[in-house]
Structures are given as C-alpha cells and as structure tokens.
Design a protein around this nucleic acid. Structure first.
Length: 204
DNA sequence: CCGGTGATGGACT
DNA sequence: GTCCATCACCGGA
C-alpha cells in the first residue's frame, strides 16, 4: 500500500462523468472500513430525468445543489441507504452514486455490519450494501469529504482505460438515456449483478 | 447458477 | 396514492 492522498475539492469540481471515471480504484473510508471502488454511476443534475435533482431543489436534494465534494445520502425502498458524492460546479446538482467495491480494510467490521453476506465479495456489491458496510446513513448526508472529517475518499492506483467499461444504468425507471452513465472495472468480481429485467413486479 | 417476489417507509404529486 | 438510483430469500435447474 502506498501513501493515501485524500481527494481534494478540485477533483470533484469537474464534469460528472469524468469524476465517475476517475473514482474507479479510489478508496472510500468511514468508521473503520475502507472500500476500493469498482462500480459507480453518474447523475447529471437538473437536466437528467433519472436524477433526484431533475425536479429542482427539495429538502431531500438540497445537498446536491451545494458545494462539490460533499456526501449526498438518500433512503431507498423503505430500508436502504445509498451514498453519492456531489460533483461538478456549485449549483449543477450533479452526483456520482457509489454502486460497488472491494473491502480492503476493516473486513471483520464490514462482516459484522453485513451478516447476510455469505462471501466477502458480496460485502459491498451493490449501492445499499456498500453504504451498510461503511455504516453510512442519514447522519452522513451533507458531510464534507475534503476537510478531514470521518468520511473521506483517497486516490488509488491509476486505472487504465482498457480496464474500464461503460454501460447503461441499473434500476432507474426513467427513459433510457442515450449516454452511458455507469462505469465499472472490467472483470471485477465485486461489480454488482447486472439485471436487465431487474424491475420488481407489482405485488398481487 | 438463475429468475421471481415480499419487505418497508419516505418523497413527492 | 404512487413510485421507487434495493436486497435477501426461496425454489427450480
């Protein structure tokens, strides 16, 4: 392991898909667990129908419209939390959803938070699983990632373009966007399962 | 391995 | 009232 350099605000203050690409291989750390990111997804602010910010500022989306380099945490499906990193220029409301990664430090702590995970590769394979492994919930919404707080992101080994693959979104109801927003590491076992027809059927 | 489905609560219309 | 940026579990192959 080399030196761990915390990402500065200028890293996040760039076009959101560029930030998403560069987050692969980086390490997010919170409360004793470090995760190397293998899969992320870009949400391009107010002009993106798939984004929570699409309909403007609400109490929930307020953080997205704020300064880049902060955490945006939302509650999903009545029982899960998901962690995003606010990106791009102040006010654009862009963010990157952290979808999956490999636990590289604090494996025992992560296991204790993810009792249902049968294999270590499943500890942070999926956005809600990743947040649970990190013990991220509403309390981390809005936290600054760049000022030495408890939630931080560090640079990792550089990832070559040949080791990166772009794809469509997962689990978003909105019309399919022409742009691929999801980026992941090629042949990485911690990338979340890709479900083409993964939508839940209506309860009977 | 795979596909199908219930659980569960808040944000927004 | 409707819609989810999901997960775990179950049964079949």
């Amino acid at each position: 392991m080399g030196p761990s350099l915390r990402l500065e605000r200028s890293f996040f203050d760039r076009e959101v898909t560029a930030v998403a690409r560069d987050l692969l291989g980086c390490v997010v750390r919170h409360r004793g667990v470090s995760i190397r990111l293998s899969e992320v997804e870009a949400y391009a602010g107010q002009d993106d129908p798939g984004s929570h910010a699409y309909r403007g500022v609400t109490p929930r989306t307020r953080v997205m419209f704020g300064e880049p380099g902060h955490a945006y945490v939302y509650f999903s499906y009545g029982m899960h939390w998901c962690l995003n990193l606010v990106c791009d220029t102040l006010g654009t409301a862009s963010a990157v959803l952290l979808r999956a990664g490999e636990v590289i430090d604090g494996v025992e702590v992560a296991r204790s938070r993810r009792v249902a995970a049968r294999r270590d590769v499943d500890l942070a394979r999926g956005p809600a699983r990743l947040a649970q492994a990190l013990a991220v919930d509403r309390a981390q919404d809005g936290l600054d990632l760049c000022s030495g707080g408890p939630l931080e992101v560090f640079a990792g080994e550089p990832v070559a373009d040949s080791a990166v693959v772009w794809g469509p979104r997962v689990g978003v109801a909105g019309a399919g966007a022409p742009t691929p927003w999801r980026v992941s590491l090629v042949n990485d076992r911690t990338v979340s399962a890709y479900r083409v027809g993964g939508r839940r059927s209506p309860a009977k």
